[in-house]
Design a binder for these strands. Structure first.
Lengths: 222, 222
DNA sequence: TACATATGTAAACGGCATTAACATTGCAAC
DNA sequence: GTTGCAATGTTAATGCCGTTTACATATGTA
């Protein structure tokens, strides 16, 4: 009935992990792409399976050949989000010397900038509180791997400053809360309402440098 | 305990939830109460208008005499949440001398504890990104008023330590990001996965004291 | 060619938010 | 008290949604 928009004919992109599809071309990726766009436009709640199907030019039952349910499709978008966040973080970090405060600040700023650029995707990535679902666990693990980047940076910082490396978590965890809190407040509340003209990058820098200075003093004393 | 007394002036004294006739005694409060319970049990998304009606013993169309739509009912729950958060913060703050670091730490710990106790409600309070809706704006204003408590505490701290009061926001905002980030990570991620045995109170204390120490040093130098 | 499998469709189910038309109640003016 | 109106409920309907079941078709391979 509905003529299918076959972008099957031209496939300039390299297929990711799966070989090309049978009927549609690559419905799985098409659905993820549609879902991503919808979520970006209308928020995680505004997205609907049915609308993604319409965009992909496919019947409402088709997605269930590729995803168990709505959550799994949304999870796939979240997963790609973590990939993107990880890449961005590494890229910014590498612009500064290892072990430097600047590299840690850059990591945090990249984190916050990602949230500002893709607020809906960012919300998604941290909105998986289902727990029992295996897929969500895999997304969470991705998040944990992301945190490891910060852990390593902090470790390098401690070695560079001669602060020892036993309490790395006591430094990294507060730093994570700082940038995560900044990111969340930036997209959920409006900083301008309470602090007009706040620059998120500056906020991250002040908070990060402030905390690292405090910790360094304390560790050096003992 | 019960906010928004605006429309309640000429109500008969119906303290109990009674549904003894065609007209429900206080359906508005009953619906808010049902919504709150459902949200606490099943999360903000698990809540449905229809189920709240079932609990209140009322037809699915009844809520629309009291709320414009689902969002407005959910907003009422969020509003009560901010009242509760504000109360908790003041209560903990007052256990410590004004201007002390301990009072600021206590404020943050109350914030995080509220999130841990009522994760679904807390998510709700910071999930209103609709913007154009007037009701959500009122909820946001409540949040801003909540922030003022922290502002005052920081101001007192600055005066007590002789740090001047011009850059209060530069201190209060990072502190907010610390506790908000801690709260969000605590309920959305699992700290144990990345840092087993983390005590949220300790995390808040370390981060807050660390940051305040760093800022104090910096401000004292200049 | 024939078949198993992967992938798609159509139709149906129940649930949801919301609205429109109608019913009942309570209050206030007469 | 009676009457009328506003507030507050109900029933029924609309149109979405997610998901499942049964069926249809394309594809790679034997």
């Amino acid at each position: 009935m509905i003529p299918r928009p076959q972008h099957n004919e031209q496939k300039p992109k390299v297929s990711d992990q799966k070989k090309a599809g049978y009927h549609h071309g690559d419905l799985k990726e098409a659905l993820i792409s549609a879902a991503k766009q919808l979520i970006q436009d209308k928020g995680p709640e505004g997205f609907s399976m049915a609308e993604a199907c319409r965009i992909a030019g496919v019947s409402p039952a088709a997605p269930y050949r590729h995803f168990a349910d709505r959550d799994e499709l949304v999870g796939a978008v979240a997963s790609q989000g973590f990939d993107s966040l990880t890449d961005r973080g590494k890229e910014e970090r590498d612009k500064h010397p290892p072990g430097s405060v600047a590299s840690i600040v850059a990591l945090g700023q990249a984190y916050v900038k990602f949230a500002a650029d893709e607020p809906a995707i960012f919300r998604l990535m941290f909105a998986s509180h289902k727990g029992e679902d295996a897929f969500h666990d895999s997304v969470k693990q991705q998040g944990d791997r992301c945190f490891n980047i910060l852990l390593k940076a902090v470790n390098a910082f401690q070695e560079a400053k001669g602060l020892g490396t036993t309490k790395t978590l006591d430094i990294a965890l507060p730093l994570w809360t700082i940038v995560h809190g900044t990111a969340c407040l930036l997209i959920d509340r409006d900083f301008d309402a309470v602090a007009p003209g706040t620059d998120p990058d500056e906020l991250v820098r002040i908070a990060t440098e402030g905390f690292l200075a405090g910790i360094s003093t304390k560790l050096a004393k003992v």
